[in-house]
Simulated assay, not measured.
Amino acid sequence: MNKPAIKSNNKTTVITTDDILVMLCKSVTDVLANANANMVTYSALVQKISKTSLKPDIGSFVLFDGGFSGLVVVNFSAAAAIEIYQSYMTNMGIPLPELSTRHTSDDVGNVMGELLNQILGDFTSLVGKELQTSITQSQPKMLTVNKQLIISIDTNLDRPQARRVTFTTQNGNIFYLELAMDRTEFIKLHDFVPEDYDPDDIIRGASEQAKKDKKDEKPDDGFDASLLDELGI
């Protein structure tokens, strides 16, 4: 079981924007590690930035809303995108010679978009479990760009904050994650145990219950069971 992204202590726990950023970074490293066995690390230092933007070579942005609103932008260098894409696909059993070597190909964009969707899905799950609130996300779309494009949230933020984190792939290639959201604090009123649901366990439990229900089914009391025996049923 994954360790909580947020550590509690005996004092009143206050969860800030930067703690939420750490949760997002944890989702990035966990999902990429599980998806392609590629160890990705992020810098211990975070940059304060004034605006978020898409930058070359390939990037994506995702809006989220609910308990709090924000914007996530991820910018990959061509080398980082190709490395992650090829590691993911070879881990799925696709031979390397059959894979694209150009970051502008649709195949690369589709795979990177799917991985980002998994990352945001893991993040929203963490938010629900550890912050006890709900957020929803837009569908990510990967874009290849050859110049910087400023991206902003189409809503009024009272106290906007923006951060940039540097990630490094196993082969030393770089990509960046940018987060913009309203300055917020979650203050824990009382202790609670974060609930951790395993979707596979839920599916298995439903399947076993269906089998049990079917096994427990009996003919109506008024039905002559001997007739079934005569018919060979």
Score class of each variant (00 low, 15 high):
residue 120 L to Y: 08
residue 211 K to E: 10
residue 41 T to R: 08
residue 30 D to S: 11
residue 158 D to W: 04
residue 3 K to H: 11
residue 189 L to M: 14
residue 199 P to Q: 11
residue 22 V to E: 11
residue 136 T to Q: 09
residue 100 S to R: 01
residue 41 T to P: 00
residue 71 L to G: 05
residue 133 T to K: 03
residue 57 D to R: 10
residue 162 A to M: 11
residue 55 K to S: 11
residue 46 V to H: 03
residue 230 E to C: 06
residue 32 L to T: 02
residue 116 L to F: 14
residue 125 S to W: 00
residue 216 D to C: 04
residue 149 L to W: 00
residue 111 V to P: 06
residue 227 L to I: 15
residue 154 D to L: 05
residue 108 V to Y: 12
residue 52 T to F: 00
residue 64 F to N: 00
residue 126 L to R: 15
residue 115 L to K: 04
residue 153 I to T: 03
residue 51 K to E: 11
residue 139 Q to V: 14
residue 176 Y to K: 06
residue 217 E to A: 13
residue 30 D to N: 12
residue 176 Y to I: 09
residue 233 I to K: 11
residue 104 T to E: 15
residue 159 R to A: 06
residue 87 S to R: 12
residue 17 T to H: 10
residue 105 S to M: 07
residue 146 N to S: 12
residue 150 I to C: 01
residue 67 G to W: 03
residue 204 R to E: 11
residue 70 G to C: 08
residue 61 F to T: 01
residue 104 T to F: 02
residue 177 L to Y: 10
residue 216 D to N: 14
residue 156 N to Y: 13
residue 49 I to Y: 01
residue 65 D to L: 02
residue 51 K to H: 04
residue 144 T to D: 07
residue 152 S to L: 02
residue 130 E to W: 12
residue 205 G to C: 03
residue 103 H to G: 01
residue 200 D to S: 14
residue 194 P to E: 02
residue 125 S to A: 15
residue 198 D to R: 09
residue 118 Q to F: 08
residue 216 D to K: 15
residue 2 N to G: 01
residue 104 T to A: 13
residue 165 V to K: 07
residue 183 R to W: 00
residue 83 E to V: 00
residue 24 L to V: 06
residue 11 K to P: 02
residue 53 S to R: 07
residue 164 R to T: 12
residue 167 F to E: 03
residue 9 N to C: 13
residue 178 E to P: 03
residue 205 G to N: 12
residue 153 I to Y: 14
residue 124 T to M: 08
residue 120 L to A: 03
residue 201 D to Y: 10
residue 224 D to T: 04
residue 97 P to V: 08
residue 47 Q to T: 02
residue 207 S to Q: 14
residue 109 G to E: 09
residue 103 H to D: 03
residue 225 A to E: 14
residue 216 D to L: 15
residue 224 D to W: 08
residue 179 L to D: 05
residue 223 F to A: 06
residue 178 E to Y: 05
residue 184 T to D: 00
residue 83 E to M: 07
residue 17 T to P: 07
residue 186 F to A: 05
residue 1 M to D: 11
residue 146 N to F: 08
residue 106 D to W: 14
